[in-house]
Design a protein around this nucleic acid. Sequence first.
RNA 1: CGGGGAAUAGCGCAGUCCGGCAGCGCGCUACGUUCGGGACGUAGAGGUCCGGGGUUCAAAUCCCCGUUCCCCGACCA
Length: 491
Amino acid sequence: MGKGLPKRSEDYSQWYNELVKRADLAENSAVRGCMVIKPYGYSIWEKMQATLDRMFKETGHSNAYFPLFIPKSYMSREAAHVEGFAKECAVVTHYRLKNDASGKNVIVDPDAKLEEELIIRPTSETLIWNTYKNWIQSYRDLPLLLNQWANVVRWEMRTRLFLRTAEFLWQEGHTAHATRKEAMDETLKILGIYSEFAEKHMAIPVLKGIKSESEKFAGAVDTYCIEALMQDGKALQAGTSHFLGQNFARAFDVKFATKDGDLEYVWGTSWGVSTRLIGALIMAHSDDDGLILPPNLAPIQIVIIPIYRNDEEFNRVTEKAVKIRTSLQSRGYSVHFDNRDTYKPGWKFAEYELKGVPVRLALGPKDLDQDTIEVVRRDLREKEIINMDQLEGKIESLMPDIHRTIYLKALKFREEHTFQADTYEEFRELLDTKGGFVYAHWDGSAETEALIKDKTKATIRLIPLDIEKEVGKCILTGKPSNQRVLFAKAY
RNA sequence: CGGGGAAUAGCGCAGUCCGGCAGCGCGCUACGUUCGGGACGUAGAGGUCCGGGGUUCAAAUCCCCGUUCCCCGACCA
């Protein structure tokens, strides 16, 4: 194992793969396409969970848990839905193993075939709506606002740690409402939560919009999304919120009695973010020396490195370091004092840079004599020696400043990589030379969209929600268009 | 599913062409010197050379069969 990471400029995806492993976030597992999320990586997920869970609860949602297995017949109830997921479903066919004739190998017992095969959930709409049918009879049972934290399986051919794995962790919200408007409001409310989370906690600027017909969730009427731009100029969908209309209510016959005594189908939404967000976090901010984590999600926000030459110095430094740790912890920071004697300071500096710890404090004999401490911020690598009594104030201003700085850096990058194209040649040129987001006119047809994707690998990431209408001509067909849509190559 | 590559110590690899003691770097263990930007010395531990079969006095190396993984495409959160 070499010391440095591959350079982003030379091989972005190799840089990403190496970084995920070297920073101890995750590794490949014995099962193809699946990952082991290591403690440091999982800790980031736990922080994401904690914040999102609080945001969901604050907006009236409750958590529940539905099974991993879905009866095969449920999948076919909603036609578009089965179409969308059929090609990537893992199926349970048997429920027992036994020894083979030699007694050495375990085989599937052919006598233990399931009556009805079970699908491992690729998402839970079908099972949940089948359950909602029993829970909802009257308008008084609505709205039903549930979320679940779960794993799902989508049998992908090509996988990458966090970005696309056969099994991944996520949350899926499933709500039921009495009116179309209420369900639509819910869809947009969640989109707002996702976008706020991305910007205020992940420090990633995102664009909100609606998916084209061919990019939307199978079974939804409309899919809303947030899209972020990664440092290699590729877009990444960071969250989706679906307006399901009455599609699943019809498929699973979920009706409710209105105040007037009429029977109507329930309106639904579903929405989710996954461990893919960790991939977004890595690719949005990190550099050639390692991760750069926003303070709100960093498992360790502050690390203290002791500098010493002998036991006497170590003891003096430790005494002071422990006091600093306690004081910062009491202010709510997560602080790690790395007192291992088995690694040198220089090694530790590099290690915590690799792991993206936002603030590093170094404390040595000179500091004790002069009542100072060295403060280094990971994002800008600025090193400062300050008086000890300024430390708490310094940390207090540093944390939000780091957040702001990396957010603005990501925003600047996005702005510098967002273009408008008015002709196909221009469009092509931008994608080939600069990458990034390109606003262009599109005639609204799935055929044109597919053709553009075929020729350029770029897809419509979203149809912007709050953009001025503008009459123009489709870059490919020249047919009329009344709004630009956002194109990019995407993960 | 199509095309290409690989499998040798915990990790990264050499050795394979041309058969002849199982190697290198990192990591690991012990001791000593070090410690303000990835220290150094000395001594050690660690192997089903992917699996099975064949050729041979002798196979990591040659032949046959099988398995797994990676990369590039098509498909996808």
